[in-house]
Nucleic acid binder design. Sequence first.
DNA 1: TTGCCATGAGAACGTTCGTTCTCTACTATA
DNA 2: TATAGTAGAGAACGAACGTTCTCATGGCAA
Lengths: 195, 195
Amino acid sequence: MAAGATDEQARNAIVEAADELFYTRGVNSVGMDAVRERAGFPLKRIYKLFPSKEDLVIAVLDRRSRLWDDGITRAAEASGDPVERLLAVFDFLADWFREDDFRGCAFINAYGELGSGSTRVAMAVREQKASFQRYVADLVGRIGGSPGLAAQLVLLAEGAQTTAAISGSPEAAGVARAAATTLIEADTGAPCVAA
Amino acid sequence: MAAGATDEQARNAIVEAADELFYTRGVNSVGMDAVRERAGFPLKRIYKLFPSKEDLVIAVLDRRSRLWDDGITRAAEASGDPVERLLAVFDFLADWFREDDFRGCAFINAYGELGSGSTRVAMAVREQKASFQRYVADLVGRIGGSPGLAAQLVLLAEGAQTTAAISGSPEAAGVARAAATTLIEADTGAPCVAA
DNA sequence: TTGCCATGAGAACGTTCGTTCTCTACTATA
DNA sequence: TATAGTAGAGAACGAACGTTCTCATGGCAA
């Protein structure tokens, strides 16, 4: 993998390796040497592509952002019904929570660990959360819901992530989905499709 | 403060100093020397009372747990109406979010940063969250709500904490309270008292 | 007073970290 | 073939960490 790899290949491999390590053990607990070992590229190459550890963290968060957007978009596209598309967010969470290495929202974790010391990390996390809020607000708008409903659904999704992480159980996704159904019905006045 | 203080006084001062530092900058970013400087006790004294940094972190979390329980109980006692007592959780959050140094839930932050490397920290965080769930479930039981409602309200509270921390705005508390009102009405069938 | 244990202030230890440097090997152009 | 530039492997650096040790000071029992 290491020898003869293009810069783009090396970039991807390094970011993916760092992501796995950072997400599993926390950023501060992972040395650059561990990243080097897992990625299979020498430190020199890593530092040429990412001048500092902070740059690598930002790249990891950017990758997570894209994966999140892709995953949630794909889950939404599975259904044609607008309300189901909105609720698909919680089905996506349910699948995620069941993964063996699920350890909560990487952005929330990064913010708690590094947000106070790194403006760039704080901004990246804020932007990801704002992007998710815009996504939900858009879906809510399509079903004629109020802006307040979108904010409420976002809280449920965020709470489900931390609760699932700490409790170690995926059931928070179902709880959030049920609450979302109630809130949507109350806001739009129309009963949701029977599951 | 340092000279001639009893062990209990020293304990409290050290835990309080560590709490402020850990909460503001993250645990790993704060050296024991910073705790010593802020608390005003020599390292020797600190290490006699807390044999390791992990012990100090646990003590900080225990203190936070007590403060949380006290604060939320006091907020609930301000009203006699059972539903208002339940909603008081979100008023308590609103006050907290408006504090200058609010930086999210210390337990969630600690779990993200240390949970994977310290079983004791992970257990302390889990216990605090379980305790909060029992508290909410108890209040929900008093108004004749279903157990599922309690779980839903907890998600709102958790989501509000992370959202308020990351967005830097306290408005998540109001959003969560509004959602909670809707969920309570839907679950119990009785309209909440007009605010 | 004399000896003794606890205390305070801070130096010191060993480790780990992020980052840089050294040295060898190779590839590619003339 | 000769040579310049780059890549790889890993040592090395300075700083910071958690933790322990040194040593001077001071109260207290005999």
